[in-house]
Design a protein around this nucleic acid. Sequence first.
DNA 1: ATGTGC
Length: 478
Amino acid sequence: MGIPKAVDVEVVEEAPFRLRVPAQGDMRVDGVVFTSHELLPDPAEDGSLQQVVNVATLPGIVEASYAMPDVHWGYGFPIGGVAATDVERGGVVSPGGVGFDISCGVRLLTADLDRSELPIERVMDGLDRAVPRGAGSGAVWQLSGRAELERVLLGGSRYAVERGHGEDRDLERCEDGGVLAGADPGQVSARAVERGLEQVGSLGSGNHFLEVQAVDEVLDDVAAAAFGLAPGQVCVMIHTGSRGLGHQICTDHVRIMDRAMRAYGISVPDRQLACAPVESPEGRAYLGAMAAAANYGRANRQLLAEAASDVFERVTGQRLSLLYDVSHNLAKIEEHEIGGERRRLCVHRKGATRALPPGHPDLPPALRDAGQPVLIPGSMGTASYVLRGVVGGGAFHSTCHGAGRVQSRKQAARAITGGALRKRLEGQGIAVRGASARGLAEEAPEAYKDVDAVVAAAEGAGLCRAVARLVPLGVVKG
DNA sequence: ATGTGC
């Protein structure tokens, strides 16, 4: 990606955890970063602030080019970036604003068990056998061919439930009821299909994981009760996405848009911001393929959750119950008020989570009073969080998605060996299963920001409220 | 993130 452009931008701390970059040059709106100077990555090593500036030049962008407290350098857009464009006023959609792992997200399940009564080693041994992971193929489901894959692309978690992998209640506990509308399998290339056939129900690698966790601390009694969370309670968190299929779709459509941009008279400061009007053949094609990948990612998490639940039933006699499933890499068409008018916007969230406030009509009745659960996976061996949306929030009802990297994978692998890290985790009482030594080292906690500080910043910025802090008991990694 | 990389 090269060396970051030396940024010479004015950054104004206008409120605690709210830095503003006033529009200058080609910027159509200001940049707003919900963080402190301490959490902001060093511009000499990380290009994310420049990327916030670049995104502000996109046609049709409204309000501001936003970034969350876990912001860091990504492909075109920063990871932690939120940007909305006005569909009826030439607004664009950009695959770089979603990222390569389309619909990467998190699912949290609860067990009716206290950590003191959990036979963790036996559960971990069961999960070790039941959870396909690592690069390449190997998955819970074997699909018969393109026709069946298309049902996954159109149906998401709903199709998995129809096939007996879960129950109807699960769908109420998924963003969009488990299936994103508008999927168009016709826009998914043969190569993406080929990669997707053998990966439905697989974790992948990198920062993806399945963790057995316990509630360490309840921070909002009322919301925690509504979410079914109590101190000491055992939970399972699954963090994964759309695997090779989503990656291939992003690759394909970046190329298509890179070629098409000129015809629409669009110029961007970075080719990685390749984009096209939402209402153009290329824009619609991408959004159709993206929705297909989103549904693939949801079916993926549904199948892994069922596999984990089967293990819990065998070992403890209890199945798991779905608290919620969120995506943190997606562009969605949503209505928001801009300058006193309801507008149709294309909201890109890349490494950012939708966080609907209490009372929002899109929430299921059981969650409507408390607000949308927001699931924040911490880095390996550190805490994770459950947050909730708040009235008044900001950035089109969005908040952070995780700790956010501060070291590259290469830097992290240089700093520690996988073996040493495994020993350290086991010394902390965290069971580790099936991780490659290299993969483990790349995910060392010191390669990430402090998740407690990120959550404090998101709360301090008024984007969300913390509901519970979770700590890991065991981790399954690719 | 990714059948991991100029």
